[in-house]
Design a binder for these strands. Sequence first.
DNA 1: ATGCCGGGTCCTACCCGA
Length: 258
Amino acid sequence: MKLATWNVNSIRQRTPHVRAWLERARPDVLLLQEIKCETAAFPAEAFRDLGYTAEAVGQKAYNGVAVLARRPFAVTHRALPGLPEDDAQARYIEIETDGITVIGLYLPNGNSGGEAGFAYKLAWMDLLAERAAALLQDDRPLAIAGDFNVCPAPLDAAPGALSPTDALVRPETRARFRRLLWLGLTDAVRALHPRAPMYSFWDYQAGAWPRDLGLRIDHVLLSPDLAERLTAATPDRAERGREQPSDHVPVVASWEAG
DNA sequence: ATGCCGGGTCCTACCCGA
């Protein structure tokens, strides 16, 4: 099983990049974030000839997530369970495929909207932990992947790339990410690469890419049964060097069949 | 230096990202 997650920063701008990457990498499942289009406008047909079917959860202009998969899958949730019914932010999709539950998410950044915006991020993370705990009660393997907007530890942010008060590194944010790990989930990239930065994002500004001032904020978390079979987990840095790239690169995790 | 770039949209100056 090869699972990938990629914040594409507008699927309409990045459809050729995604197509080319799918042809090269051939993941079984690709989770997309920041599609920045409404659900009905997602260009599902652009990936069909490559063997992928698509489901999107979108909204106008902001956020938006999607799943591309080569095998049949069923969408089980189109919003994070526990959020208010009137929360219209498109940040969550949950599917079942091949006996595995897969969550694709775009976690709130938490830097806009002042303390209320940060509180929304923390509340979202609390609900995610509740959902993860509930799913881990089942025997079904679980993968949670996406743009978490969290640098879990100092190694995950280039020195000077962020203020210590940034929502991506604040202690309250990191504590909630650790809670996910303490539930029994494994951070796939960090598990296989304990010492290297393994950035997944470089800002468009200030020469962040040529200076390698990156962040590791896109993650794949695996339940114990999947983590035991993990064979590879890495960001695909080459994507950041292409023409008109997203500011994020795909993060890919592979494990052996159970 | 919260602007530098690059998406988006009430079409064009402004919001948002991280």
